[in-house]
């Protein structure tokens, strides 16, 4: 039984990282109807930015204050990258056919990925051990301090985001822009500002996810954005792309699913089963678990 609960804990940890990254995909899709393929590379970039901030600005200090500062600075820096991305890769193509924007997104992702390689080098870099290795053994289930931090902070961030979207005026503006941009504009909503805000929130959540990947797995490479981006993208689709609680649910489900498949069947088959799950969900519920059926205007 402790094996089961251990897998559960493993799955929830990785799942909450997927969920944080998936939110970036889903929010951008919700408003722009665009798959932001550069999001994964942005997540990878955030881990490398964290590495540099740690080494230079923080002077390799790992006090609590320094760790919080690293999180804040990396989120801010990645948000700036997100704004630049939107301004130069997506805004000029806002009126262009959907396909052009997708190609632009892929291009932006390659530029980011190779940019990381040029700045930080092609080899794997090792992320500092910022959180002390403290473990608790609860009836055979071992949980580390880092896992607890990842889980708590993710839940906190997701709850805050949910509150922001559902309960504030700016959140209402985001929801309105997602439904109909022209109508939102007529109601006096600055849609451009909403879109910038979306990129700021999505990128900084992704940045936190990127830092978690660095902290949890220690090794970061310039190509890792592709792998995590793909998984988060699947999570967003499973939950229903464009749907914010859906991305959270999709991420956690995907984390649990891969943990149980690799633990009980074989890690070799984890990817195959993941894509099988994706296909099955798309067949049964084409709009994802929480996605709503939207009639297309022709």
């Amino acid at each position: 039984m402790d094996t089961f609960f251990q897998q559960l804990a493993n799955g929830l940890t990785i799942g909450s990282i997927y969920a944080l990254v998936a939110l970036g995909y889903t929010m951008v899709y919700g408003v722009l109807k665009l798959i932001n393929f550069a999001h994964g590379a942005l997540v990878a970039a955030s881990a490398f930015i964290g590495l540099t901030i740690y080494a230079t600005i923080m002077g390799e200090s790992s006090s609590l204050l320094a760790v919080i500062a690293i999180f804040a600075l990396v989120a801010a820096a990645t948000a700036c990258l997100g704004i630049l991305l939107e301004r130069f890769a997506y805004r000029p193509l806002r009126q262009a056919p959907r396909l052009s924007a997708v190609v632009s997104a892929l291009g932006a992702s390659l530029i980011l990925q190779n940019g990381i390689m040029l700045v930080w080098g092609p080899q794997m870099r090792i992320f500092p051990q910022l959180v002390p290795q403290v473990y608790w053994n609860i009836g055979g289930v071992v949980i580390s301090l880092l896992q607890v931090i990842i889980l708590l902070l993710s839940v906190l961030l997701m709850a805050a985001l949910y509150f922001f979207i559902e309960k504030t005026r700016m959140g209402a503006a985001i929801r309105a822009s997602a439904i109909d941009q022209d109508a939102a504009r007529l109601m006096g909503i600055n849609v451009n500002r909403v879109i910038t805000l979306i990129f700021v929130i999505g990128s900084s959540l992704g940045a936190i996810g990127g830092l978690f990947i660095g902290l949890y797995y220690r090794g970061i490479t310039f190509e890792m954005g592709w792998q995590y981006g793909l998984y988060a993208f699947i999570a967003a689709i499973i939950g229903g792309i464009g749907n914010i609680p859906g991305a959270m649910l999709g991420g956690l489900l995907l984390g649990l699913f891969t943990a149980f498949i690799s633990g009980y069947i074989s890690s070799t088959w984890a990817d195959a089963f993941t894509f099988l799950l994706l296909i099955l969900i798309l067949i049964v519920r084409p709009t994802g678990l929480l996605g709503e059926r939207v009639a297309q205007k022709v």
Binding site: Q7, N10, Y217, T258, A259, I261, G263, Y264, S267, T268
Partner: peptide
């Protein structure tokens, strides 16, 4: 057991080994 190189998350396999 076989793992996929670079997949980073080995906790599921290790848990079943435990």
């Amino acid at each position: 057991k076989k793992i996929k190189a670079d997949s980073q998350n080995f906790t599921p396999v290790l848990t079943s080994i435990r």
